[in-house]
């Protein structure tokens, strides 16, 4: 009897927590359900499920947001930043992890300062510098801005990782008369896979979802990222639900699909990265 009561209690607790978790997801379901309803339907019955699918909501949003273009922009910018950050970060981290001279120590301090500084401290001058260099409204400009923002994290990350590589491995390569760049390219680089994967998750998520830099640096509609095109499409005044919800769904769709496919690895990577 006691056993039975315990099993039932346990089942009830599991069910209750699942209920709580699903309740946390209600805003996501709400966003999806509302995106298929017309403004009149929402005004009349705010919480009803869609009875028919107002695909015209999506047709409007897709066109007005220039959706495909903005997804391509986001993908291009995100991938470029991730590759550049991983490359520059890892090659800089190699000597920093191995040498303990004054130069290395100063560089690490600079990196730590970069990690601690909120980007708000530099946005005013960044805007001025970009305007003077003609980098406003260019892909190169926004890629450089994001690269600088994420580089300290990358260097920090790789330094920790490379410092953990056994000394003997590198000394053996040295004995074989490898030059420093050969040591990096043939010995260290192949070992960096897991570090790069975790780092890339952070950088991609940060760049894809960032709002500040595109708001500041991009005014040309053709260069908008997904985030900023959602913002420009929905606007600040008189927000219309039949525009807001489809735009919100489209805006989060690429990452949500990625997340559903790779959720285990994404959660594990982002958690491990934060803990380290």
């Amino acid at each position: 009897m006691l056993q039975l009561a315990r099993t039932t209690g346990r089942f009830a607790l599991n069910a209750a927590i699942i209920g709580l978790v699903v309740a946390m997801l209600l805003p996501v379901f709400y966003m999806i359900a509302m995106s298929f309803r017309t403004a009149t339907e929402i005004a009349q019955q705010p919480l009803a499920l869609p009875t028919s699918f107002a695909w015209s909501n999506y047709a409007n949003a897709l066109e007005a947001m220039n959706y495909l273009r903005s997804v391509l922009n986001s993908v291009g910018i995100t991938v470029s930043v991730t590759v550049i950050v991983a490359l520059l970060g890892s090659i800089a981290a190699f000597p920093l992890a191995r040498n303990t001279g004054r130069y290395s120590r100063l560089f690490i301090m600079l990196v730590a300062l970069g990690l601690a500084t909120p980007n708000f401290v530099t946005i005013t001058p960044i805007y001025v510098i970009f305007r003077d260099l003609g980098l406003l409204d260019t892909y190169i400009g926004i890629i450089l801005a994001f690269t600088a923002l994420n580089l300290p994290l990358a260097v920090f990350f790789y330094v920790g990782f490379i410092a953990a590589i056994p000394k003997e491995l590198l000394e053996a390569a040295k004995l074989d008369n490898c030059k420093d760049w050969q040591v990096f390219w043939y010995v260290i680089r192949p070992l960096l896979g897991p570090a790069t994967a975790t780092l890339s998750l952070f950088v991609m998520l940060m760049v894809w979802n960032d709002f500040t830099y595109p708001l500041l640096l991009l005014t040309d509609k053709d260069k908008f990222t997904v985030t900023i095109s959602v913002y420009r499409f929905v606007g600040n005044q008189n927000v219309q639900p039949d525009m807001l919800f489809p735009a919100a769904v489209l805006g989060s769709l690429p990452l949500l699909v990625m997340f559903i496919i790779f959720q285990r690895r994404i959660v594990a990577g982002l958690t491990a990265g934060a803990v380290k």
């Binding site: 927590i17 699942i18 978790v21 699903v22 946390m24 997801l25 805003p27 996501v28 709400y30 966003m31 509302m34 998520l205 894809w208 979802n209 960032d210 709002f211 997904v226 985030t227 900023i228 959602v230 913002y231 929905v234 927000v239 639900p241 807001l244 919800f245 735009a247 919100a248 805006g251 989060s252 990452l255 949500l256 990625m258 997340f259 959720q263 285990r264 994404i266 959660v267 982002l270």
Partner: peptide, 24 residues
Amino acid sequence: FSRAALFTPAMMSFVVVGYVWQFI
């Protein structure tokens, strides 16, 4: 399951979350 489900909102951008909650 719960860990992944609770994590989902962190995948969305501030812009999307802001608009959706504004309407809520």
